[in-house]
Design a protein around this nucleic acid. Structure first.
Lengths: 250, 250
DNA sequence: CGAGCCCTTGAACGCCGTCAAACTCAGTGG
DNA sequence: CCACTGAGTTTGACGGCGTTCAAGGGCTCG
């Protein structure tokens, strides 16, 4: 991304994290004016850290905030009364999380840190205030939300209408593309700290069956997932299986 | 910008449809200033009508527009290569549709008129322009988008982790709540023009099995769906089945 | 009246969930 | 140093549920 360096204090409480991944993502679609970047950084009040496995909630001193994920992986999920779990989304660095909970205040899904996680906290009132003078910022946030929605749509299609093997293929292709866009690995080889049962709960499968599907894919020699490493050996065949087209990821 | 103006209006291109359902929905969350309402109405350039079964696309004179559904039902869906179909969302009057396609320009899902449909067309560039001076409008659109996302999340949970019978129960409860909010029927009795196979394609079931589930529900005397009428006979039991909580619909 | 769509029901197969057991590995504490 | 624990992964056996295939019903519309 062209523009950056440690922008000299736009507002008094700017955190000055070098190269905000979020700003980078927004850049892809809408060319930010320098002052928009400053605003976006200014919104990040303070850094918070969550340990692996902990819930990311809006408790403590900041009942009203969203987060930008700066490092680590997170996910949102819903617990069902019968004890099962549906994972809604996985989040990787640069993702904006918690906006829905925040503005709708009717969230029944939970946020959870999959690994140790660092986030930048954003205060709602600041965000709304910033919206008012800055249609471009509003547009960027809207755009980011719509992109999340596009991923959600693909996720729904996955769970609703793809065979388990195609579903798994699609999942790992999407993840690879997302990570590659961030420079965290390549489309075909990347680290993935998610457990099999977590992914299974995202894909509407049991952990047992997900494991069997992984074995199929391994035996077909198209991909492996072992000890936190994903290796897509035959991307073309995978993409044919999954009917995958990365354009929705930009 | 070719603005159609078969309509006289306060501002040159204001449509002045009495009581825009969309404005009504937005009202629920954010108190509009009078001028915001005017802006929202001004955005609706012209009315378009689509016949039952036709695709709602961005062709012809307006490659760049979203729609507000004013009358009738619509849906978005994705066709799979193997010939199956996943319905993503059903839309009822008041819903804002086509925003994702518009801003992301990478949509691989289609919009379709389930019944005869009347829409108000919104030009993107006008929308973006309106955003700039008006954070409140931007906030409203964002909020509307997030509410759609919340419905999508519930849909995902439905398909991923509920038994077919609970899934169907949840679907009809949600639909009833949405329609009741609009004054189109009550939560427990309403008209529904969707076909069984369309709903089945939304819920990740085959039409055959969906029909069997309907029979189960009928035999349990909790609900019926016949000749376009939905009757929820035992709402409490249905809500227990589906683990339904309408708070995400507002 | 025939064509086509939608709904309904039956029969049979097979996929995928459930249950169960065993293995690895990391962490903990005796 | 080793036993113990618990989480994660892997594999097998089995049964039920939902798909597929098929046929027949009612309905509207040309």
């Amino acid at each position: 991304m062209p523009h950056d360096s440690s922008q000299p204090g736009a507002k008094s409480r700017t955190l000055h994290l070098p190269a905000s991944p979020m700003a980078g993502k927004l850049d892809v679609h809408i060319a930010f004016l320098p002052e928009d970047k400053a605003i976006l950084d200014a919104l990040q009040i303070r850094k918070r850290v969550f340990i692996k496995g902990s819930d990311i909630t809006h408790e403590g001193q900041s009942p009203q905030s969203a987060y930008i994920l700066r490092a680590g992986w997170a996910c949102s999920y819903k617990l069902m009364r019968n004890g099962t779990r549906q994972v809604i989304s996985f989040y990787v660095p640069g993702d904006l999380i918690g906006i829905r909970r925040l503005l709708l205040s009717s969230a029944d899904d939970n946020l959870c840190a999959v690994t140790r996680v660092e986030v930048g906290e954003i205060n709602v009132e600041d965000l709304i205030e910033a919206f008012d003078g800055n249609g471009r910022l509003a547009m960027s946030i809207l755009w980011s939300t719509l992109k999340d929605e596009a991923i959600l749509v693909q996720h729904l299609v996955d769970v609703g209408r793809r065979r388990p093997i195609d579903r798994v293929a699609h999942f790992f292709l999407e993840l690879g593309s997302r990570l590659a866009l961030l420079g965290l690995g390549t489309r075909c080889t990347y680290q993935c700290p998610l457990t099999q049962s977590l992914i299974a709960d995202a894909l509407g499968l049991t952990a047992v069956h997900f494991n069997r599907v992984l074995r199929q894919l391994r035996e077909l020699k198209v991909m492996t997932f072992h000890e936190g490493w994903v290796r897509l050996l035959d991307c073309q065949r995978l993409e044919r299986l999954a009917d995958f087209d990365s354009s929705y990821l930009q």
